[in-house]
Design a binder for these strands. Structure first.
Lengths: 216, 216
DNA sequence: GGGTGTGAAATTCTTCACAGCC
DNA sequence: GGCTGTGAAGAATTTCACACCC
């Protein structure tokens, strides 16, 4: 299987929750037009995305909901059973630890870490919060572990270093500020502030008609 | 000023934190190559992005850090002083309420709302959590208000309806599941699960060399 | 010399439109 | 009849490369 285009990848991930919903409603099959409307994309685009995974549709009928879900999930690596650890158990860390949609997609949380003594030893969802020193005891298979980093900005770089030392090579970073990581480490940054800013821009554009737009 | 391309928009938002950092380090000017490296983009791309806002650079020197930051921030609508309300004060809601990078960029939180009686009346960062019934008392200027929705899935649609009734037209939705909203309402969905899945896919690709890649 | 601003080329992504299958 | 799968057209984005300015 060839590498999927970046744009397709983001859309495929968004099809999964929609398929979950359809499955929950008891739908067995779905046509590209319906699923596309649900996800806010063009039907042709959706069909093209799915055709990159192979041909899972039936002409005249559509796609089998459960089977399609499995195929997308497998392709995205969700079925490979990743193990998650969360570093930084503040509000955001706790939110991520209890975020059920993640667990549903095959990401199981196996460890929680924090630096603050008053947090260490407390429990979240039945898991005890541990100090970073115990990282290696918890992470038994670093190649299959993804670290979610939700620490305050100042601590992030040293956390990344410790994770790298423990052999972890996949990081989802919610902490603002760029970090340097060894080349074998894949770091994906998520910036919640940017999302707000993009929304604000769009609203501003819609509300204040451009001066160069002639009335029609 | 014309509408900015969607792709440029996302990058501009990512330049702001980098400029913040440079400013904090005392840098007065920065060349496109340096800032681009910091943000992980192509230097020509960065120059083209900035040129869409006007010509703020000096040939042979670079861009003035503080001035460039102000220009981008203004263009993105951050300086328009948006008022934020947060609906759903669970862990994620609390995390967003205390997320300082947001406040820094001109987004001030003016209200917190939740449905659970045991949460109503508690305080987060000095703000009292209120029931949705008090929405209109808090939101005095709905056109300048952005609602951040962090409710559990089942409650989301009714929350959107109530927000629409109160005249709010901008929503950042962290809740999974598609919602229907009136046409004048702009809803931007953020799915934290997708980010994990995209990361997992990339790691899977890097770790298992494609069969069709000939050794070289 | 160093670095921006920007047409033009190259690439990637999206949409169309229709043959082919159920 | 309805819907998928996909080549081809069209649109958008990224990158190159160089004129121009400090």
């Amino acid at each position: 299987m060839n590498a999927l285009p970046e744009a397709t990848l983001a859309r495929l991930a968004s099809y999964l929750p929609a398929l979950d919903r359809l499955h929950a409603e008891g739908r067995e099959t779905v046509a590209s037009g319906d699923l596309a409307a649900e996800c806010g994309v063009n039907p042709a685009q959706l069909r093209k995305d799915l055709s990159l995974l192979g041909s899972y549709g039936t002409r005249g009928v559509g796609y089998e909901v459960a089977y399609l879900h499995d195929q997308i999930n497998r392709e995205l690596g969700g079925a490979s059973h990743w193990q998650l650890i969360i570093v930084g158990i503040g509000n955001l860390g706790r939110a991520l630890a209890t975020h059920t949609p993640m667990a549903v997609r095959g990401f199981g949380v196996i460890g929680l870490f924090d630096a603050a003594p008053e947090v260490i030893g407390t429990r979240v969802e039945g898991l005890e919060v541990r100090p970073m020193a115990e990282l290696r005891q918890v992470v038994t298979d670093p190649a299959r572990t993804i670290a979610v980093v939700a620490t305050p900005g100042a601590a992030t770089q040293s956390v990344i270093d410790e994770l790298a030392d423990a052999g972890i090579r996949s990081v989802l970073n919610f902490s603002p500020g760029r970090v340097v990581a060894p080349p074998e480490m894949l770091v994906r940054a998520v910036d919640l502030g940017s999302e707000l800013q993009i929304l604000a821009y769009h609203r501003q554009m819609l509300s204040t008609p451009a001066a160069d737009t002639v009335a029609n």
